[in-house]
Amino acid sequence: MKYTGIVFLLLSLLLCGNSMAQSSGKRTNLYRNMLEDGNIKKTYWQAQNNQNELQTAFSGLFLFYKTFFSSQDLTVCTFTPSCSEYGILAIKSHGMIKGGLMTMDRLTRCNGLSPQNYEFDKKLMLLKDDPTREPLVPVVASYK
């Protein structure tokens, strides 16, 4: 056990010894991202991985709306995911008819009058309402 330890040490010395030199001096690269980079471009994962033509078509509509309309607006939706994201996710996971109905219903619920009905996302300061997820109560505690 002792010898294996020594062999391991020697090996690791051999492997890592040459990278010792760089630790001195001002390491400017660490601070490259210290300031915010001001990038406000968004990417939409919701429009990716389309399974069929219908999903591609709706994803196209979604991207069109996001690029030319939603981009000209501040956050106006009270929910996360937003209504348009909810729409594309609902159609992708429940089909056009049910997903469409869910979206129309969501549009009427997007009024901010009943915040007590939803969980709250503290980071985004928005109400949580995900069409793909049903809230479940955990059975077993995560602390004992």
């Binding site: 300031l35 001001g38 406000i40």
Partner: peptide, 13 residues
Amino acid sequence: EAIAEAKIKERRF
């Protein structure tokens, strides 16, 4: 306004 703020941040960066 938001775009101008982001632009400032981008250029400062």
